[in-house]
Amino acid sequence: MRKDSRLSRVLHVLVHLEMTDQPVTSDKMAEMLFTNPVVVRRTMALLRNQGFVRSTKGHNGGWSLAKPLNNITLLDIHKALGETSVFTIGLTDEHTNCPIEHSVNAALKDVMNEAEGLMLERFGEITLDVLGKEFKK
């Protein structure tokens, strides 16, 4: 199963944006993240829609922060990305009539919901400025 690394990749980009004095292009971000610029633009558009970043067109254009990182939490970014779960593991639904599957799913669901609730609560307490403190210019 492939891990969803969008949250960590976006956090990486946001810390870089904090440390630069000029907008960063989608091409440059894509190069940094080993991905396609179209993927970067789509992802950054989600953040722009929530007011976390802005984009400028033309020569010397690109992406920049619209808010200081100390006003953005991990939870804000998680929500902006449209993430439904912090876990990439899921419940099985291949044998919907099987009582064992129902029992296993019920046990996993309770544990995963509790863990996710605690994780999201903690996400809401962590602002992004702490992520790059050791790298400040």
Rank of each mutant, 00 (worst) to 15 (best):
N71W: 15
I89V: 15
L65N: 03
T92H: 08
A80S: 12
H78C: 05
S85Y: 01
P68T: 11
G62M: 02
G82E: 02
T56F: 13
A66Q: 05
H78V: 01
L69T: 06
L75N: 04
L81C: 07
L65M: 04
T73M: 05
A66G: 04
H59E: 11
W63I: 09
T56W: 11
L65R: 05
G90Q: 05
T73R: 08
T88M: 12
T88S: 14
G82Q: 07
H59G: 07
I89M: 13
L75T: 01
L91R: 14
L91E: 12
T84Q: 14
N70G: 06
P68Y: 08
L65H: 02
H78M: 03
S64Q: 10
L91T: 10
K57E: 12
N71D: 15
L74I: 07
L69S: 02
L81S: 08
L65A: 03
I77W: 13
D76V: 12
K57D: 14
L74H: 04
K67Q: 15
G82L: 08
L91H: 06
K67H: 03
E83D: 13
E83H: 12
S64C: 04
H59A: 06
H78E: 08
E83S: 13
A66I: 05
N70H: 10
N71Q: 15
N71F: 13
K67V: 11
A66M: 09
G58F: 00
L74A: 01
E83Q: 15
S64R: 03
T88A: 12
K79P: 02
G62L: 00
L75I: 04
A66D: 06
T73N: 02
T73K: 04
L81P: 05
L69D: 02
I89C: 14
P68V: 10
L65G: 00
W63Q: 03
T92S: 09
F87P: 14
H59M: 07
A66E: 14
S64K: 06
L91F: 06
L91K: 09
K57V: 12
V86F: 01
